[in-house]
Amino acid sequence: MQEHTSHTAESLLELTVDRVVEDPDTDTRILVLSRTDGKTELFMIWIGAAEGESIRRALDTSVTPRPMSHDLIKSFGEHFGVKTERVVLTDVKSSTYFATVYLESNGVTRTIDARPSDAIALALRCQAPMYVTQDVWDRRSGQNLDAWLSKLATKNIGTQEV
């Protein structure tokens, strides 16, 4: 595999959500992330069903009759004038990914520790960019699952649950 590491200050790669796929064997979802720089490799994270559906709703920009949990967090920000500036996938330990959410208000930046699923569910609602460190990208798992995933995806695409 070819990697062109950019040696910027933090070596961050911008991500976009490719799709959310159901894992038929468990009550989880697979969050499939891709890079915005045109590289074709994917990055997969197993997340909870509720968080997966929340991300799916954000992608569809579907509106639920009542605000869901991540809509509520977004609403706090709108009320307070706090901006979700960006989210970064910062670490992976024993297959658990760690994210940091950057908030900005009155010129002050604050950070929150989060699971990637919550961070991304919020970022999508706030049009905030999502990044992964080069280090975490290089250590991602599931790199050989492309074929398996594409098989799975054709079965599951369009099975939107609300």
Partner: peptide, 8 residues
Amino acid sequence: THDFMKGY
């Protein structure tokens, strides 16, 4: 999620 909300 609600711990994250509290963290926020």
